[in-house]
Design a binder for these strands. Structure first.
Lengths: 248, 248
DNA sequence: CGGTGCATTGATAGGTGTCAAACTGTGTGG
DNA sequence: CCACACAGTTTGACACCTATCAATGCACCG
């Protein structure tokens, strides 16, 4: 299964782009050296499945670059995305043998993987890893709960605006830009993936995006590039406080 | 704010009913002794608010008995329950100053509280606590993601059946009964609270419960006491595998 | 040039929300 | 003890939002 094509070149932890945000963020130099010994990189192409729900988990790891999604599927095919994995996000659950969700690369993806058992051993001995993982898991729990409000109580239009807000905000922080003035970004998801995230059909997603465009809340160049002339207007459409306090 | 009426009698950790499941589950005797020093009990009456979203968190703690809910509210009043807190569940987030959600007692409630700062200090020095909290947080994250599927993709009828399944299952494990044969339990939630949990209106909740009753999936005695003649039938209505693998 | 994947748009149906009224059980005060 | 208020619940009529089914458009590529 592993071959040269998906085994990427080894990279130094010290120069890693997610060094200060991933599960290893708090590790000392000597702890990083121990991690170096059990880590390896893997590449996935856009559309490729990283893990199937129910499969044995051979590894856990961090997203280094690219975007992956976590989805659940019902027997009749209905799907719900339950997580969006961005660079520095952690994949897998220490202490559990099989994957609970499908993990799919939506863009080309590079992961920093640790074989599961050695990582679990190391977690026992390295509080810095467990502490950081707790912090990250608490953040993910908050994000999941925010999303429950979106799924349970928001209208289709508000759902779209909420998703666009999140992507815009993340893009702004990632590129160290403020949230003042017009924002522009690319949608990393297809209409169908957005629908899976929002609990809608892809037709409704398309219609609501067209409506937001028609109303001047967003401007589209092509299908995927979005410009937001006034972020506070978008936040208002999302049903959040215009201050954006929700995700602070 | 604290007075004799909501300050409950001190209780020994060793004889605590949630001793083996709460955040202190892995603590040694000497660690428990240190926890004893910073803990105190508080009682809340049904309907009382434990913490308001945005308030300063003075304490974290465990639910000892009773049930509490975690809810988010939008400016226009729409509400979504994002968590159901049962005995042994943990309340609060170490490392954060203010509450992110409203915590409300839906039944009479007893909590084992720790003042926040001493608890955070102790967590640093006591891996057993941090380890257990990580495990519990991962479980909660899984539960939240399960619920995202319910909110995003299930019909009203399936939502009701899902909620009843969860309550029935929990009740069975709590009382050490198997899931074979008929199950009976009391609903700990009003129709409105169920609606807040399921992302529905209380009218729709009422209608779907009536429909499940009419179809023989459940039997009602009064408004709150439910009997499930055939659990696999209920699970089928919930859209889950009849084996119940989802929550295993 | 046609094929394929993705997206948009239209017509229609169905599920759930909204508004309104009536019912039930419980507790309270006269 | 009864009358009443009140919260919680049930049921009905109707409107509206979103899903469904279907056709078309668009960009990219063999």
């Amino acid at each position: 299964m592993l071959n040269e094509r998906n085994l990427a070149a080894h990279q130094d932890c010290e120069s890693c782009p997610i060094r200060h945000r991933a599960v290893c963020a708090r590790c000392e130099t000597n702890e990083l050296e121990r991690l170096e010994e059990i880590k390896y990189y893997r590449k996935f192409e856009a559309g490729q499945t990283v893990i199937w729900s129910g499969d044995r988990m051979e590894f856990v790891g961090s997203v280094v670059s690219g975007i992956a999604t976590l989805t659940q599927t019902m027997e009749d095919g209905r799907r719900q995305m339950v997580g969006l994995l961005l660079p520095s996000d952690f994949v897998g659950r220490p202490g559990r043998g099989t994957a609970a969700y499908d993990v799919v690369a939506t863009t080309d993806l590079v992961m920093c993987c640790f074989r599961k058992t050695p990582f679990e051993d190391m977690m026992q001995k390295t509080p810095h890893i467990a502490q950081r993982l707790l912090e990250m898991t608490l953040d993910e729990l908050d994000a999941a709960r925010e999303w429950m409000l979106v799924l349970g109580r928001k209208t289709a239009r508000e759902k779209i605006a909420s998703l666009l807000s999140i992507i815009a905000r993340r893009d702004a922080t990632l590129n160290l830009r403020g949230t003042e003035g017009p924002l522009a970004f690319d949608l990393p998801l297809t209409r169908e993936a957005m629908a899976d995230y929002l609990g809608l059909t892809l037709e409704t997603v398309s219609r609501q995006i067209s409506a937001l465009k028609r109303d001047g809340v967003i401007v589209l160049q092509g299908k995927r590039h979005v410009t937001v002339p006034d972020m506070s207007l978008l936040l208002e459409e999302a049903g959040d406080d215009a201050d954006g306090g929700v995700f602070a």
